[in-house]
Design a protein around this nucleic acid. Structure first.
Length: 581
RNA sequence: GCUUCUGUGGCUCAAUGGCAGAGCAUCUCACUCGUAAUGAGAAGGUUGUCAGUUCGAUUCUGACCAGAAGCUCCA
């Protein structure tokens, strides 16, 4: 049962989209012969092509390009592959400076291949569909025009990147576009405002304000975090937000991270607002002697850090300038490393599963400007890989993307549009223990240097709240909901009874509101639904008379009249089990 | 930070080189109603900021600020 040539097959899909990118480039060249082409790969949803043009592409121009692409599809041009020796390849691409650079950068023995379709030829390794007629012309959409640096280098030419997507059927394209529209409704920036969770103000770009309902969410999340970490053998500390320059010099941040740090001068002394919690954590470790019996020592800290991120990088709660890392530093022996990594990954799995989140793991390896012995790097990197492999997990490698002090495992979670954000990370550090001369006394009575893990599960409270807001589309599970029950009296006659019911719920520790306004029930339900309140508790004359409540769940609808105790039992079960309800 | 685009009551959006408009939300009044919007009225704006062009700018131009998409960077 092969699905080799169906759109469900990723290989085929990418080939289809890659051919689309050539068709787009051909169309652009026909309409605007003066532009220079850079690169145009297939991506997860569609393709893009980077183009150097002496003008800006307007939406009208994109529409024209789509039209020309349809023509090219109808022309059913054959795609023919051919290879050339380097000199001839360079001659063929003489008018395309970016292609020339690409060819020049190919290794000596590389095969230089081209694809030709009609009058258009592009440098390309392939593979491709055999004809432009294979592409359904009326199911092509150019979705965006943005900018990108040539070869991802911010010091080089800014190019225009045109994005497109295409499907074998028009209906599938429409479905895709519809899906994107729906996904945008889950955007945490929109929901955060609608639900009164948090806000951002011009007075502090990137510094989020948490509103009362957002604080309930945040504090509930933190309560859960503390409960889990206690179970996994962590202790918790808190270190100061502002510390003297000498500390940051010792940690290396003053030299390596200064551009991102907020600094201040007080009485002629330099201070920095912490961008990371680790240096403070080092001081805590050093404050008393340690035995090998103490290790692994797991020290957690919900630390508020400030980093001056580039203005263009800010993005709702996903990328801010001040955030609370759910940090922990684990001090251990080299022998304990693998088991300890597994212990952390196990904790990650437990936490993420409570929110129904799935992740992708990346292993980041030694960067060019690293510190320390390469032998130690190899050992640490291997240990990271082994730990996750032994736990049956897959990972991709991010070559050379480790921190300067050690390799790391990153856990990426996706937002509503499929963009991924690094949340959890497990970073091995062979450097800070050295710089701060950390020690423990071994069984042999000698002093030894511990190795360290920096790790966060949520990443930052802020980013994680953004992720779960989108994941739940604002309808948080009951245990997390800022308001868990909204009591809706049908008429004023039930108003006192509504207050009594609410008082009981409040006394039992649930978060409850009463809607006393003289509006119709339907109106109150509608509003409670829009606020994503999980349980509405309707009380009218009948309930007053029978001493009942009539719960309505936001998705399950009317649950029918029942005693207060029966309702509280349902609520207790849902909340205590942290059910996805 | 870079490229492009955007900025109008609390929110969503109209309109115009010549008195800035609607819906929702808010407030008041009436209605007392059983599972997704009851009706009427009122209030709410120096059109992001600062300059410039103009008899007149919210509209045109520029700078700045903020936001969006992407790049770069990162929790």
């Amino acid at each position: 049962m092969s699905n080799e040539f169906t759109f469900e097959n990723e290989q085929y899909r990418k080939t289809y989209w890659h051919t689309c990118s050539h068709i787009m480039a051909q169309a652009i060249k026909r309409l605007h012969p003066e532009v220079k082409l850079a690169i145009g790969p297939a991506i997860d949803e569609g393709w893009y092509y980077d183009i150097d043009a002496p003008f800006n592409f307007t939406p009208e121009m994109l529409t024209e390009i789509e039209g020309e692409m349809r023509k090219i599809c109808k022309e059913k041009l054959k795609l023919e592959r051919f290879e050339l020796p380097r000199a001839e390849a360079l001659a063929l691409m003489a008018d395309e400076p970016y292609k020339i650079e690409l060819i020049n950068d190919l290794p000596e023995d590389a095969v230089i291949s081209f694809y030709k379709q009609g009058e258009f030829t592009d440098l390309c390794a392939g593979p491709h569909l055999d004809s432009t007629g294979r592409v359904k012309g009326n199911a092509i959409k150019l979705t965006a025009c943005n900018s990108a640096y040539w070869r991802g280098d911010s010091s080089r030419q800014v190019l225009q990147r045109i994005y497109g997507v295409a499907y074998p059927k028009k209906a599938e394209l429409d479905e895709y576009l519809q899906r994107i529209e729906e996904a945008k409704k889950r955007d945490h920036r929109k929901l955060g405002k609608e639900l009164g969770l948090y806000m951002l103000m011009d007075e502090g770009p990137g510094f989020p304000f948490f509103l009362p309902k957002g604080m309930v969410l945040r504090n509930t999340l933190i309560d859960y975090w503390r409960e889990v970490h206690k179970r996994y053998g962590y202790v918790e500390i808190s270190t100061p937000m502002i510390l003297n320059r000498s500390l940051w010099e010792r940690s290396g941040h003053w030299d390596h991270y200064k551009e991102n740090m907020y600094t201040t001068v007080i009485d002629g002394e330099d201070y920095a607002i912490k961008p990371m919690n680790c240096p403070g954590g080092m001081l805590v470790y050093k404050s008393e002697p340690h035995s090998y019996r103490d290790l692994p020592l797991r020290v957690g800290e919900l630390g508020l850090v400030h980093r001056h991120e580039l203005s263009g990088a800010l993005h709702g709660l996903f990328r801010v300038r001040c955030f609370t890392q759910d940090d922990a530093h684990i001090f251990m022996t080299w022998d304990q490393m693998k088991d300890e990594i597994k212990n952390v990954v196990k904790l990650f799995d437990e936490v993420y599963s409570v929110f129904g989140l799935t992740y992708q793991i990346e292993v980041s390896t030694m960067p060019e400007d690293h510190m320390g012995d390469e032998k130690d790097w190899d050992f640490a990197t291997e240990t990271l890989k082994q730990a996750v492999t032994e736990m049956g997990k897959e990972f991709s490698i991010n070559e050379g993307d480790g921190a300067f002090y050690g390799p790391k495992l990153d856990f990426h979670l996706a937002d509503c549009l499929g963009r991924t954000w690094q949340c959890g990370t497990i970073q091995l550090d062979m450097q800070l223990p050295e710089r701060f001369e950390l020690e423990y006394t071994g069984a042999d009575g000698e002093k030894h240097r511990p190795v360290m893990i920096h790790r966060v599960v949520l990443g930052s409270i802020e980013r994680f709240i953004g992720i779960i807001t989108e994941n739940f589309a604002g309808a948080f599970p009951t245990w997390l909901s800022p308001v868990q029950v909204k009591v809706l009296p049908v008429t004023d006659r039930a108003s006192d009874y509504a207050d009594q019911v609410a008082a009981k719920l409040d006394k039992s520790g649930y978060r409850v509101e009463v809607d006393h306004r003289s509006e119709k029930l339907g109106y109150k339900i509608r509003q409670a639904r829009n606020e994503r309140v999980p349980y509405m508790l309707i009380v009218g004359d009948k309930d007053v008379e029978n001493q009942t409540v009539s719960p309505r769940h936001r998705t399950d609808g009317d649950l029918g009249a029942m005693s207060y105790d029966a309702f509280e039992a349902i609520l207790k079960e849902v909340v205590d089990s942290k059910a996805m309800k």
